Simulated scan of single mutants.
Amino acid sequence: MISLSAVMTPARAEDVCAPATREWLEATFAVRWGGEELGAVEVAELVTGADVVLTSWGTPHLDTALLTAADAPKVVAHAAGSVKRLIDADAMAAGTAVFSAGERIALSVGEYCLGAILTLLRRLPELDHAIRGGGWKQPQLRGSELTGRTVALVGASSTARALIRLLKPFAVDLCVYDPYLTAERAAELGVRQVSLLEVMEADIISIHVPSTPETEGLIGADLIGAMRPGTVLINSARAATLDGPAVTEAIREGRILAALDVFEVEPPTLSAELLTAPNVLLTPHIAGDTIQGHADLTAFVMTDVTAWLRDGTRGASFVDPERLAVSA
């Protein structure tokens, strides 16, 4: 029987592995589960000799030496998102097959982005605040519809693709800035390719780029200044992509409506002007965090792992080593 070691705490295993999935794993694999402490000794014991290593948030970095030894695992299945801090590119180059649940998390992120867009367009936080203060209808806060608007995505990552699918019923004019997106793939997605400056002309802008040297500071103060009054800005990706002070100033001035789920330092220390601004929705990095999404993560990656072990099929969760540098 194929051996599987879950290098995660019991609490994390309960979080990312539904009871039915746990039963399936234990019927299909010879499973060892991690304990409360994941020190170097326990991690080495779990990884050494296992055919498959199951990881998630909280799993320590897996040393390349462990993953390239004679009795190293064939597969690392990450029931979470990015694998960049978990495994080195050298280990992948040496033959370790890596799978990530990023595509599953992307669905949760896509739903968050759609919800944030609709919430801000209809001015729901401001209307909620008004009625709690004893008010009623606010003519100056009449909301807008999403249908037929121009939506621009910065990046064509898995989260962007999830949002694209969810936006289909709204008949929006959808455009994307992504230097890695081919014309053929853009046509498949049904999007227009535009420049970064053209993105700033959209009614709604949503950020979907990974954390790379290229994306840090990608949207500076000049581009933020080019956004049209009333623009809805959603950032569920990486805070460093945007010029933070310029975004705060645009919010303070009331020029834009924004939903911010990521911050350069987390938890953040936010300015009073941001905390009191009625035109911003602040959330604690939870765009990809849902009950159903977390419970499904192990099943998502392990379904693909079993297919790969059977016949080499590369499912949606397979991490292409050649794409690691530009992935989330």
Rank of each mutant, 00 (worst) to 15 (best):
L218H: 09
L197W: 05
G135N: 00
T147E: 14
A97K: 06
D51H: 13
L46R: 01
D51Q: 14
A130N: 07
G35C: 01
S157T: 15
Y180N: 13
L281T: 07
A246I: 05
S157R: 12
P19Y: 04
A325H: 13
V265P: 00
V209Y: 04
R192F: 09
D15T: 14
L197N: 10
G217K: 04
C175N: 13
V52Q: 12
E253F: 03
R185D: 14
G102W: 01
S271P: 04
V53I: 15
D243A: 08
P267G: 03
V109E: 02
H61G: 06
I117R: 03
L281Y: 03
A13L: 15
E45I: 03
R12E: 14
T269K: 12
A240Y: 00
P267W: 04
F29W: 13
R185P: 06
G134D: 00
D222M: 10
G81D: 05
D63Y: 03
I291Q: 11
A69Y: 01
R185A: 15
L62D: 00
I205V: 15
A94K: 01
M227P: 09
T21F: 04
T298R: 01
R149F: 08
E26Q: 13
G49R: 02
D178G: 09
T283V: 06
P284I: 04
V109A: 08
V53A: 03
T313A: 14
V209P: 12
V98N: 03
S82P: 03
R252Q: 10
R314E: 14
I117V: 15
T215K: 04
P169S: 09
A106V: 08
A287C: 11
V247G: 10
